[in-house]
């Protein structure tokens, strides 16, 4: 049922009227809720000049920009390294040698079953690593394992005939992989890979918890400044649209690639299922 209209009839005049009523009532309810929140914001004095003035200072703006830069830096490192780790682990899982396969399966399953934060804290606290490498390492281990599963699913879902045909042409194992399976798989996997990178981008905010000086950390510094009358809510109101906007942009890009691909004949041999988060269960959506 791709079109949800199968769930209800095309409404007649009376139903349309009723729906309009529901629509109006719910809109009023939402507007009232927003109004109430706005009232609360005004009532608790969140829009006073003192609380918003700090955003006009150059130092504060630079602090925020530096935080944003650090977030993007951590994201870039994590993305590159997890793609590399994912490739290595996927090669391991697709290997013809059983011990290699077992080891990589064990690694992938373990790192996917662990909370990212536990890994980051372990690396930060127990191994006494600096915040940035700890954050990047934690994100890499988790996202790399998830991406390994994505890559494996992608390669496995290329039509069997493609592999058989290449072997019949006398290609070697590596040639089949490099020239036939991977190029087709990567095209089909691209949307899933990008959605997993959105997860990595969102998780860079965990750096805040290990005192990495990223965007949220910069916000916290401003928010806890007594000189500016503790502008906590203004900080949240400035930071969250930027964060959510960045993630939305990346998600939207993933969707765009996916839509483009649905029309592309080059990916016809592959119909990929999204990678499953967590563990051990068949099926699923990109890990939250």
């Amino acid at each position: 049922m791709t079109d949800s209209t199968a769930l209800y009839d095309i409404p007649g005049p009376k139903t349309r009227q009723r729906h309009r009523l529901y629509g109006i009532v719910s809109t009023i309810a939402i507007v009232a809720l927003l109004g109430w929140i706005l009232y609360l914001l005004f009532d608790t004095g969140q829009f006073t000049a003192a609380k918003w003035a700090p955003f006009e200072y150059k130092g504060i703006q630079e602090l925020l920009l530096r935080g944003l830069g650090n977030t993007l830096k951590a994201f870039a490192f994590a993305a590159v390294f997890s793609l590399i780790l994912g490739t290595i682990l996927a090669c391991g899982r697709l290997s013809d040698h059983a011990p290699v396969r077992w080891v990589s399966t064990l690694l992938v399953e373990f790192f996917r079953a662990m909370p990212v934060l536990v890994m980051i804290f372990f690396i930060f606290v127990a191994l006494k690593v600096q915040p940035l490498p700890a954050l990047v390492a934690g994100l890499t281990l988790y996202n790399g394992s998830v991406l390994a599963e994505v890559f494996r699913a992608g390669v496995n879902s290329v039509d069997r005939g493609q592999r058989e045909a290449s072997y019949a042409l006398g290609m070697r194992k590596t040639q089949v992989m490099a020239h036939v399976l991977v190029p087709q798989a990567v095209r089909a996997m691209l949307p899933t890979i990008i959605s997993q990178l959105v997860v990595a981008l969102k998780d860079t905010s965990l750096g805040y918890l290990i005192t990495y000086e990223e965007f949220l950390h910069a916000g916290k510094l401003i928010a806890s400044n007594l000189d500016y009358d503790l502008p906590f809510i203004p900080v949240v109101m400035v930071i969250s649209p930027i964060y959510i906007g960045m993630c939305m942009l990346l998600s939207w890009f993933a969707n765009w690639v996916a839509r483009r691909q649905r029309r592309n004949p080059k990916t016809e041999a592959v119909d990929i299922a999204p990678a499953k988060p967590g563990t051990l269960l068949p099926g699923g959506t990109p890990a939250p």
Binding site: V118, K276, G278, L281, P282, G284, A287, P288
Partner: peptide, 15 residues
């Protein structure tokens, strides 16, 4: 199965 995966992710996020 996908709801199971989502709830596993929830358990991990509780960290």
């Amino acid at each position: 199965p996908p709801i199971g995966s989502t709830l596993i992710a929830l358990a991990k996020n509780s960290a």
